[in-house]
Design a protein around this nucleic acid. Structure first.
Length: 1000
DNA sequence: CCTGCCCCATA
DNA sequence: GTATGGGGCAGGA
């Protein structure tokens, strides 16, 4: 149909008072599809998630414009689509966008629907043969801007960023982000006017724009900033210093020019519909409502009916024309099971279900623990996982039935579903329970409907038990001393429940069971354990909530899908427990689990909840200082190098140092590139080169800025104003903890600049931070384990251990010792702990392999017990596949018997190190487990905040500091006892101050 | 957008 | 030579 007045000149041109909104319909479809909850469907199964997002956005933009404030509404509006995949660009470069994957199957019917939606809202729907939507948008935007009007492009497509200017803006509704010049700069490193120059160099693998090989966004921006544009750069390509880059720029010059043509948008498309025809017309209420009703968008239908005065009840759903779509027979999708689903008594789990533990059934009665454990594993493996047996609990009476069942059984696996991986911020969305294999339920508590996404709506899905009421029913069971609660990674669930006033206990943790039994054999995550022990692949999280950009929080997941996923988690957890728990006794690991692992959960959970204060202003000032320092060093570097380059790129740096400047490159990395690590740079610096010194300086500042001063403030919890790290109990082979998000176990300390970061960790007003650390704990453990008389005596006498070592080895007196000699001995001592090699020691000390070998030989002569210990450990690990710590913890090295000599040597060194590092880890764990009670018993309120392998950090009121320090020292120094009497004393140094740096 | 690589912060 | 976590870059899905 031809618009009646399509060439009517009487439609007025746009003026400065006009505001044109151009929606990039094509990319919107794809992005909405990925951003919105998966599997939103109409009752007949028609997938409509993208259409729903589109309609919401359209309505909001038409009525409000970009912001809810008045006066922002558009005067002109159009939605632009791609017409077909072939465009003039394919004539220039046939491969352009050639590798685009086919759109997902359930998206295909939505293409037509979105065009219908546009028409239903009375909005021009524009597409034109041979041109991409981007070219049409570019043309219309340029025309309107030339008339003086304001233009807003609604898209997240980076290719459109080249259009941004004084009158033309861009908004990404999916991210709710306005894209202006600063954002373009952030993305491309240049302003909008240079975007195409950068793109023509860097290329774009998504669209198959080739660019120039070896040049990414960073380098491209660097080059364009230096040369201004592509042609100038290509003209001067021969003078580029880096050989590889020069060659590529010359060889691929034509390819870059083609790329530029591909990315340059066409601003002069002979458009069929003039921009003046985009004047906004009132939405035809009945027409829009008819369409929305057909789509079953209830919320939006209501909203638009109200706004337009249309009588929704009297309007029939519109007829939809959907090519390629046939509604399936009215079988209906699986509905959530109602409150009465399932029988009122627990279903029999099947005759093969194991009896509850503790009540050893007669046939198994005479088996050894090992047989029992193996039989149990086989038994569990045979019960299939069946999602259809799970119940969705929507009714408080049913919940009470489940709780009663758990109380009666005495064992329940439970799992929480939340909105975040950060236990400190996660909102509870649901709880799942399992009482026997195959008997599990999910209790949704906080699911919302997804339609409110773009409008901020999204109320609770009706029918769920109110959160508070459900928790009141669950609490007595979760805290009942007679009911064992089992979880996978319990610390997380414990935290979430603690924030709702529930202290879960007693408990078991399948992740820790696995870690205790199998540390070093592989991961301890649930999916992995399920594969390993049950031969079952649980529903992947990404299948339920999506992944990456399109991931939704769990509260937006449809309840029936959430239910299958969540109930399965509890079911699998229970099964894993049934398999793993009997192994504790069979493999004599029950004590390790019960004294070193399980009780750590509440201790760490409390430490994480407390968090630590950081001084945001101080870090912000530091970021500024570091930035200034980097800028200063940067210009010196460019001057020394004779050109600008990306210092942060090891590849480019290597080209400059070893290519252009021809410095002798000592080492290469395993991929064959020049190594530019500090040790290499230091060597060059020692030869008198200035540039490497500056690089090291720049690197240090860059590291401190990006990893610490820039990143740490982002971890301040908005509610508590403190930083809450997360400790992992099960991610090292040796028994150490690890810390992440943020990692507070690698806060700088060695350099002056680094210690400024540490100063930003502060005590609250009226409080002090106390740092207490073990002195030389690993060497002391080594002295004990390997039973070395000289070492033991030195520690007993409180001597300087490295000086003593030097004295023994080189026969020099400790008094007035040359610091260099002591330094060598210190390096050797560390080397021993790491399973020394001549290669490593040589690298560390900057001496020859032969010389290092001589040192080691001499060391073993003086301390033969060390060599004996090392040989014994190697023998042990080859025979058993694991080694143990002083307290019985196992570290497995399943691949130690490999025939690859260097791999083998690596595992042997690791095995030598593990009992030392691991015993020290056990000791500080024991101290941590006793610390809280000891402090409370001493009448102190002081609390433990952090652990850094051999150091504990506390926060105490000033008045308590003096009394607290002796208690802390006593607990830490006596941590081995009474289980073990170490043959060397443990020594703890403790200090209090206003910040971490001064306390350390 | 994810992954491998390189480099670097700590004990 | 041991044990970690994390940031930036570049390349390939």
């Amino acid at each position: 149909m031809i618009r009646a007045m399509s060439n009517d000149a009487s439609l007025p041109a746009l003026t400065a008072n006009d505001h044109l909104i151009l929606v990039d319909g094509s990319t919107f479809i794809f992005r909405a599809y990925h951003a919105l909850p998966p599997l939103t469907r109409k009752s007949d199964g028609l997938p409509v998630g993208a259409v729903s997002g589109f309609c919401n956005m359209l309505w909001k933009l038409l009525t409000e414009g970009l912001t809810p404030e008045k006066g922002d509404e558009p005067t002109h509006f159009a939605v632009i689509f791609d017409h077909s995949s072939k465009t003039f660009r394919n004539d220039i470069y046939p491969a352009y966008k050639a590798q685009r994957p086919e759109p997902p199957e359930d998206l295909i019917p939505q293409f037509g629907l979105i065009r219908q939606a546009t028409r239903a809202f009375n909005v021009p729907c524009i597409e034109q043969e041979g041109f991409e939507a981007d070219d049409l948008i570019a043309t219309y935007a340029t025309q309107a801007a030339a008339m003086g009007a304001r233009v807003t492009i609604v898209s997240g497509d980076k290719d459109l960023m080249q259009l941004i200017g004084p009158r033309i803006g861009m908004i990404d509704t999916m991210k709710n982000k306005i894209i202006g010049e600063p954002e373009v700069f952030e993305k491309f490193g240049v302003g909008p006017d240079k975007v195409i120059e950068v793109q023509s160099l860097a290329g774009d693998s998504v669209d198959n724009v080739p660019g120039v090989p070896g040049i990414g966004l960073k380098t491209a921006a660097q080059l364009i900033l230096e040369y201004g544009d592509l042609e100038t750069l290509l003209a001067n390509a021969a003078s580029i210093k880096q050989p590889k880059r020069r060659e590529n720029l010359i060889e691929f010059a034509e390819q870059a020019r083609i790329s530029k043509q591909l990315v340059t948008l066409k601003c002069d498309v002979p458009v069929e519909t003039p921009v003046t025809h985009f004047a906004v017309e009132a939405v035809n209420g009945p027409q829009a409502v008819g369409f929305l009703k057909a789509m079953e968008f209830t919320t939006l239908t209501r909203r638009i009916a109200e706004a337009t005065g249309a009588e929704a009840g009297n309007i029939d759903p519109a007829e939809l024309t959907i090519p390629g779509w046939h509604a399936p027979d009215a079988k209906g999708r699986m509905m959530e099971r109602g409150p009465d689903a399932g029988s009122s008594t627990p279903a029999a789990p099947g005759s093969t279900a194991p009896a509850a533990p503790g009540s050893a059934p007669a046939p198994e009665g005479m088996m050894t623990p090992q047989h029992l454990a193996a039989a149990r594993a086989e038994e569990i493996r045979r019960i299939p996982v069946d999602h259809s047996t799970y119940e969705t609990v929507m009714d408080i009476e049913r919940l009470k039935v489940w709780v009663a069942e758990a109380m009666e059984t005495g064992i329940v696996a439970f799992d929480t579903e939340t909105t975040s991986l950060d236990a400190m911020q996660a909102e509870l969305v649901g709880v799942s329970l399992a009482t026997r294999p195959g008997r599990a339920c999910y209790v949704p508590l906080g699911h919302v409907d997804g339609e409110g996404d773009l409008l901020g709506g999204g109320g609770l899905v009706p029918g769920q038990i109110p959160l508070r009421a459900a928790l009141d029913v669950l609490k007595p069971m979760l805290e009942d001393p007679g009911v064992l609660k089992i979880a996978q990674n319990l610390k997380y669930d414990w935290q979430v429940m603690a924030r709702h006033g529930i202290e879960v206990g007693p408990h078991d943790d399948t992740m820790l069971l696995s870690y205790t039994l199998d540390a070093g054999k592989g991961g301890n995550g649930m999916d992995e354990l399920s594969e390993r022990w049950l031969g079952h692949t649980p529903i992947p999280f990404k299948d339920v909530a999506g992944s990456g950009k399109s991931m939704v929080t769990f509260d937006k997941v449809e309840i029936s899908r959430a239910s299958a996923y969540a109930a399965e988690d509890a079911d699998v957890t229970l099964r894993l427990w049934l398999v793993l728990k009997p192994r504790l006794a069979a493999e004599a690991m029950a004590t390790v689990y019960e004294t070193l692992e399980r009780p750590m959960v509440p201790v760490l959970a409390r430490m994480e909840r407390r968090g630590i204060s950081i001084d945001r202003q101080m870090l912000s000032r530091l970021s500024g200082e570091f930035a200034q320092g980097m800028a200063a060093v940067e210009s010196e570097i460019y001057a020394l190098a004779g050109e600008a380059f990306n210092i942060g790129s090891p590849k480019q740096l290597g080209d400059i140092l070893f290519g252009k400047m021809g410095l002798p490159g000592g080492k290469k990395t395993k991929t064959g590139a020049w190594s530019t690590s500090v040790s290499v740079l230091d060597d060059l610096a020692a030869e008198g080169h200035e540039l490497p010194v500056k690089i090291v300086e720049w690197r240090q500042l860059a590291k401190l800025k990006s990893t610490y001063s820039d990143a740490l403030p982002g971890f301040i919890n908005p509610e508590t104003k403190r930083v809450h790290t997360s400790y992992s109990l099960a991610s090292t082979t040796t028994g150490r903890l690890s810390s992440s998000e943020p990692n507070l176990q690698n806060i700088p300390v060695r350099t002056e600049a680094g210690r400024k970061i540490r100063k930003a960790f502060v005590a609250e007003k009226g409080n002090k931070l106390i740092s207490a650390d073990y002195s030389q704990i690993e060497l002391r453990v080594l002295a004990h384990i390997a039973d070395i008389p000289q070492l033991k005596k030195a520690f007993a006498d409180g001597l300087d251990i490295h000086a003593m070592t030097a004295s023994e080895m080189f026969g020099v007196p400790v008094k007035d010792m040359d610091p260099m000699v002591r330094r060598r001995a210190k390096a050797i001592n560390f080397g021993i702990i790491y399973g020394i090699s001549a290669f490593g020691l040589a690298a560390q000390l900057g001496i020859s392999r032969g010389e290092a070998g001589d040192y080691i030989k001499m060391y073993f002569q003086r301390f033969p017990g060390i060599r004996d210990y090392m040989e014994a450990v190697k023998k042990e690990v080859h025979e058993k596949g694991f080694v143990t710590t002083l307290f019985g913890r196992k570290a497995h090295y399943p691949d130690v018997n490999t025939s690859n000599p260097s791999m083998r040597a690596f595992f042997e060194r690791a095995a030598i190190n593990a009992p030392i590092q691991g015993s020290a880890a056990d000791i500080i764990r024991r101290a941590m487990l006793r610390m809280e009670d000891a402090l409370v018993d001493a009448g102190l309120k002081i609390r433990m905040l952090l652990q850094v392998h051999d150091e504990l950090i506390f926060e105490a009121e000033e008045a308590e500091v003096e009394a607290a320090i002796p208690v802390i020292r006593r607990v830490m120094e006596g941590a081995c006892e009474p289980l073990l009497q170490l043959s060397v004393p443990l020594q703890v140094d403790a200090r209090a101050a206003d910040n971490w740096d001064e306390a350390h």
